[in-house]
Design a protein around this nucleic acid. Structure first.
Length: 550
RNA sequence: GCCCCCAUCGUCUAGUGGUCUAGGACACCGCUCUUUCAAGGCGGCGACAGGGGUUCGAGUCCCCUUGGGGGCGCCA
């Protein structure tokens, strides 16, 4: 249910918001002021409660500053990569700047190692930034753990102005409140026990050694409107907003404060984040209003869900960017897929490089509906991008994988680089992931003892050893052992002995590779080399005799 | 319980009141090409959640219902 999107007081005033330290694109959104009677002070807050259309916001696309603000408490999650990409696109598509801010206020769980890995994963995707902990910038520091003095100052301001108050309620009391609310089927909000405490009360409670948190005193009677760039205006009635906590009892500020304050102080013009943040937004607007700080534009992107339509998590398998990388996905495919979760070009094009995304991106084309992660589609895009990436780059990735899978050593890979290049080349479009090289071509790198059971049944007949021996004799005399040579030799055998091609080709493939699928037989045999080929043919003939197939 | 978001094929989506017997892509199923597999080509399956309005006319606008999701934390 939405309230009217404008108020009478709104129409009367268009007072501009407080200016930041340096020039920025002047907000063209009408501002209006209303006053708030706090317990100890009378403050004026600027609130945007006037409506405007989303396209109007979208038109202000100069001097854009966006930010990606990961919390280094884990690896870069797929969903976070999605919002990082959109932050990057919103800025880069309009010549704007990207900031990387590390939100490490959760000191328990944050580590420098995760911070490093997140930055590595972003870099791998091709998402770069202009300002950040590693680069510096005019609005640093870029780690929240190094900005505590800034938060302290803002918290003091809120407390002295009366926009916030100290709350001495114990966790037990709050739990009881919650339980009662649940029973009475009321919304879970703070009951306001400490709302009207005076500074004298605070002193008394402090003397008793009681800890306190700090809550924002929500302004009475005023709705807060979030102007979302892809959803339009979202109105939160005053009683839908809680007197939320933004300073913990240990004195540390929470995300609600640090995130909002930093966005404003760092002069972020467009906050691009997941839609799970929508309900945080009115609270953050309230903080900024109470502080007299500029409010950025907000853009809440659709969330990504798992197959069961719940928020994508570990339960759904791989969720970290680095996991996909390990599974053999290639960065352009990831980016391409990620971009289409929330955006699309409105026509039938489906392959976009990061550069092409930048050149085609538009905020109007963002979609609102949550999307479900589709592994098959990622694989499809990956196959395309493997085929359309510089072969030398793919070769490097294949070699990296081969080493990890212990199919080659770094030394042998270096010595046989040209040979491996040829192997990758004959794989053609068969690789959906880099790792598929193992499933598809492990026989190039190691011997095997098993033959595909279906193939054995279909192609290893009683007469097969005889044919294989015939082939073996011919091939062992072939020189040079080339694709063309093998091709010609085999066809000669077929003609001379009136053998149908199927009787030669299928058993031979099975003998050489153990598989019933793969690249062209002649080129495969040539790459395997005469020695290996002959050896495997001999071995297969023996195997068939030993196993006496039907 | 309260607040908020979302709603076209299984999935990603096109569609901005008439051109929609709803288009594309993935997946799936045929056929074709072919020494196998993959790729390619051709074809098939398959959706406007329901109900009320508004309108000459609704997938497209409004309302309700339903469904799904997110949030309501001294996490971010």
């Amino acid at each position: 249910m939405r309230a009217p999107t404008s108020t009478p007081s709104c129409a009367a005033t268009t007072s501009p918001p407080p200016k930041g330290p340096t020039k920025r694109a002047a907000p063209r959104i009408p501002e209006c002021a209303f006053s708030l009677r706090g317990a100890h002070a009378r403050v004026t807050i600027h609130a945007r409660v006037c409506s405007f259309s989303a396209p109007e916001a979208a038109m202000k696309l100069e001097n854009i500053r966006t930010r990606f603000a990961p919390s280094p408490t884990g690896l870069l999650h797929f969903g976070n990569a999605n919002t990082a990409l959109f932050n990057w696109l919103v800025a880069r598509a309009h010549g704007g700047a990207v900031t990387l801010r590390i939100e490490d206020t959760d000191t328990e769980r944050s580590t420098r190692d995760f911070e490093r890995k997140i930055m590595d994963d972003l870099a791998w995707l091709g998402i770069d930034w202009d300002e950040g902990p590693d680069k510096g910038g005019a609005f640093g520091p870029y780690r929240q753990s190094e900005r505590t003095h800034i938060y302290r100052e803002q918290i003091d301001k809120l407390l002295t102005s009366g926009a916030a108050y100290r709350c001495y309620c114990s966790r037990e009391q709050l739990e009881q409140d919650r339980a009662r609310q649940q029973e009475n089927k009321e919304s879970f909000q703070y009951v306001g026990r400490c709302r009207d405490l005076t500074p004298d009360d605070w002193a008394r409670l402090d003397a008793e050694g009681k800890p306190f948190v700090v809550r924002l005193r929500k302004p009475a009677g005023n709705a807060v409107t979030v102007h979302d760039m892809i959803r339009g205006d979202i109105v939160f009635e005053a009683d839908a907003i809680d007197d939320f906590i933004f300073v913990r009892s240990n004195g540390e500020p929470t995300f609600l404060l640090t995130n909002a304050v930093d966005d404003s102080l760092m002069q972020i013009t467009h906050v691009v984040r997941g839609e799970d943040h929508i309900s945080n937004t009115p609270k953050q607007i309230l903080i900024l209003n109470a502080l007299g700080l500029p409010v950025p534009q907000y853009m809440h992107t659709a969330i990504i869900l798992g197959k069961d339509k719940t928020k994508l998590s570990k339960r759904h398998g791989a969720v970290n960017v680095s996991q996909f990388r390990e599974q053999g996905f290639v960065a352009p495919a990831m980016v391409n897929y990620l971009a289409f979760l929330g955006w699309n070009p409105k026509d039938e094009r489906e392959f976009f490089s990061l550069e092409e995304l930048k050149n085609n991106y538009s905020i109007e084309a963002m979609s609102k509906n949550p999307s479900i992660f589709d592994y098959d589609r990622l694989r499809y895009l990956n196959q395309h991008w493997i085929a359309h990436t510089d072969p030398e780059r793919i070769l490097d990735l294949v070699i990296d994988f081969l080493i990890k899978a212990e199919l080659v050593t770094p030394q042998s890979a270096q010595d046989n680089r040209a040979w491996i290049r040829d192997i990758v080349a004959i794989m053609g479009d068969r690789l959906k992931t880099i790792n598929d090289i193992e499933e598809l071509g492990d026989y190039f790198f190691k011997d095997f003892d098993d033959y595909h059971p279906k193939g054995v049944k279909k192609y290893f007949k009683e007469s097969t050893p005889e044919h294989l021996e015939l082939i073996e004799r011919t091939l062992s005399e072939l020189d040079p052992f080339t694709q063309e040579g093998v091709d010609a030799a085999l066809h000669r055998i077929m003609e001379e002995h009136e053998l149908p091609p199927a009787k030669v080709i299928h058993p031979l493939r099975l003998a050489l590779t153990g598989k019933i699928f793969g690249p062209g037989l002649f080129e495969l045999a040539a790459l395997l080399g005469k020695e290996k080929a002959v050896e495997r043919i001999r071995k297969a003939a023996q195997w068939i005799s030993d196993n006496n197939p039907s």
